[in-house]
Design a protein around this nucleic acid. Structure first.
Length: 596
RNA sequence: UCCUCAGUAGCUCAAUGGCAGAGCGGAUGGCUGUUAACCAUUAGGUUGGGGGUUCAAGUCCCUCCUGAGGAGCCA
């Protein structure tokens, strides 16, 4: 969903810019799903919004076989602009929508009426068919099938990564964002604007028409011999990215531009693919995605400091009888903040859908200044019913392996790049993880191992104290050298909702540690016994009235259930070898830093 | 929040308390196949802010700001 610009809608090519283009890959793969697609236009330029929804049922799956081209759109509705008076008048509107039907083999349908705008409709279908642009060729397409395109006249659009020139010959490395690789554009002084073009600064946006030819020099298999080069948007001379390696620290000062560099283009494409892989993993296994609230009154047992959400006047807040800030007068009538976890909320849905997960932003107002902490990050929290800690760990392991496998498959160039320039052991390590079983170790055993270890720890390991980072690193990086689950921690150092083990002094918790990144997952089996949970709430000094609804879940058909939280950015760090969380978040928010 | 280190040209970094420099980038010119092209010329500075010591401070001291690394908290 998203807005369509006036300019974009004005041409057929507009549709290549639509956000739902992102859906093209999954659409192609779910060729048997029945999809319903609609565009609602409020004005003549399709400015308002569009919506995409997918539906499937056993019956429709049985009969809706998409054509070979991979087209998954079965019905396309284009609704003409409504009169201003027609707005917000619920139900069916008087303008009958024009309906185009296409690609429904073996099923008789009413003959299609004349389309409102045949050009638009056609463009839409084509976009979905090819998942690509209209009117020009992407660099991705060139590398996918150079043999077919060699010798052809074509057009590319992108930005200058670097440019080199001699007296009457020049080269441009053009990147159009469609893939990691650049296209080399070569042009000579027969070009009308040769001299001018050689002075286009780095970062300029170009439209280049020319012929795709084999490259006579090493370094690239083919290149575009330009016939015309048109500057769509010239870059100013103070474009900060140069033809050299920049420090990550400097790149953090220009987050709006850094995606135009190799490293960050690779990072953020992998981030996108990893997010998709996680949804794919869960959706294919029958998990229901739950959008837990972002504004909440619950602090989830103190998982972290909350950012306050308020409309009260910060300078002169209303006070209650005791002189404290009177949140009864605040917007929600109580003290609220940004979520630190959706776990408690999603547990309710778990006891309805059985398998659920959240995937959304999380906010922690901790003053944490490390490579692995951000104030705003994304978290995945699956929750499974009729399940114990062992099921939970199997799920975590399977999920992580799935995501690794998916990324290795879908982003080979990016991964090759990381392996070469960021972390030379990356690919080997990830491939090893795919084949290896994750290690499992109880906290008690971990402490024993650490106490016997021949390593100079600053903090001597002791049962009952939480493991220090140095302990975790030692176990994960020195002893096992692969992902490691540490389970069954002392109840005193873990949250109230974790299930009390039979020994009465540990809880069914698990942390997954991975080399170099540290804790990437924290989870547990939840306490499903009402009395035990009540007792734990009291023991931890929490207010029972705050957790009434949560206790309810144990009264109304409660079952053993378990879940975990995966820090999405930490997973991306692990996948890419990037060492700082600020470099895997598009616009990172950390203490004292929320610019852009 | 605590500990450590750093802040000098657009970027990366030099400069024993004694004339503020280099490479890259920019501009200009040269070069017919470049790959972070190459060659020449050239412009570019309130040394993070404030205060102090000194004949003299980029350098020493105090303080604040910002960044990085580590710790804690966690994902």
């Amino acid at each position: 969903m998203g807005k369509i610009s006036r300019q974009a809608a004005a041409s057929l090519r507009a549709f290549s810019n639509l956000p739902f283009l992102r859906c093209s890959a999954p659409l192609r793969k779910c060729t048997r799903a029945r999809l319903y697609f609609s565009i609602i236009a409020r004005s003549s330029c399709l400015k308002s919004f569009c919506a995409l929804s997918g539906r499937s049922s056993a019956r429709s799956r049985a009969r809706a076989q998409a054509p070979a081209g991979g087209l998954a759109i079965l019905g396309l509705f284009i609704v003409p602009p409504r009169s201003p008076a027609g707005h917000r008048r619920g139900g069916a509107h008087s303008d009958a929508p024009a309906i185009l039907w296409r690609g429904r083999p073996g099923k008789s349908r009413p003959p299609p009426p004349a389309p409102v705008c045949p050009g638009r409709a056609f463009a839409l279908q084509s976009v979905f068919e090819r998942g690509e642009t209209m009117g020009w060729t992407t660099v991705k397409q060139l590398f996918a099938d150079p043999q077919r395109l060699l010798g052809q006249e074509l057009e590319v659009r992108g930005w200058i990564r670097t440019q080199r020139q001699s007296k009457n010959l020049a080269f441009i490395e053009l990147n159009d964002g469609s893939c990691f690789r650049n296209l080399q554009v070569v042009y000579g002084d027969e070009l009308a604007n040769f001299a001018e073009a050689t002075r286009y600064p780095l970062g300029s946006a170009l439209r280049v028409r020319g012929r795709l030819v084999p490259s006579p020099a090493a370094g690239q298999p083919f290149e575009l011999k330009a016939g015309t080069i048109e500057a769509v948007g010239l870059s100013a001379l103070d474009y900060p990215l140069q033809k050299k390696r920049h420090s990550f620290e400097f790149m953090r000062t220009i987050p709006h531009l850094r995606a135009r560099s190799n490293t960050f283009m690779a990072v953020f494409r992998v981030r996108s693919l990893a997010a998709f892989a996680i949804h794919k993993f869960f959706q294919e296994r029958g998990f229901v995605h739950v959008h837990t609230p972002i504004i909440t009154g619950s602090d989830c047992e103190g998982a972290g400091e909350m950012f306050r959400v308020t409309t009260l006047d910060a300078k002169q807040p209303p006070l209650d009888e005791r002189g404290a800030v009177d949140f009864r007068q605040d917007f929600f009538g109580r003290e609220t903040g940004l979520t630190v976890s959706g776990q408690l909320n999603v547990e309710g849905f778990c006891l309805a859908f059985n398998r659920v997960y959240t995937f959304g932003p999380t906010f922690r107002a901790e003053n944490s200044n490390t490579q692995r902490h951000a104030s705003e990050f994304w978290m995945i929290e699956p929750e499974i019913a009729f399940a114990d800690l062992g099921d939970n760990m199997r799920l975590a392991e399977e999920m992580l392996k799935f995501v690794i496998g998916f990324i290795l498959e879908e982003a080979p160039q990016e991964m090759e790049f990381f392996n070469r320039f960021i972390d030379p052991a990356l690919l080997q390590r990830l491939r090893l993880v795919l084949d290896a079983d994750f290690e499992r170790l109880t906290y008690t055993r971990a402490v024993e191992l650490l106490q016997k270890a021949d390593a100079p720890f600053q903090f001597p390991p002791e049962w009952g104290r939480d493991l220090q980072t140095e302990h975790e690193r030692y176990l994960c990086e020195k002893v096992f050298r692969k992902p490691l689950f540490v389970t069954d921690y002392p109840k005193e150092i873990k949250a109230f909702y974790m299930r009390l083990n039979d020994d009465g002094r540990t809880v069914a918790a698990m942390d997954l540690l991975v080399p170099d990144v540290g804790e990437i997952i924290g989870g547990s089996q939840r306490e499903e016994r009402h009395e035990v949970l009540q007792r734990r709430i009291a023991e931890m000094g929490l207010k029972p009235e705050d957790y009434q609804w949560y206790l309810d879940l144990r009264r109304f058909g409660g079952v053993p259930h378990a879940g975990f939280g995966l820090g999405f950015e930490r997973a991306v760090m692990y996948l890419t070898g990037m060492e700082n969380i600020r470099d895997v978040i598009p616009y990172p928010r950390t203490p004292k830093s929320a610019e852009f």
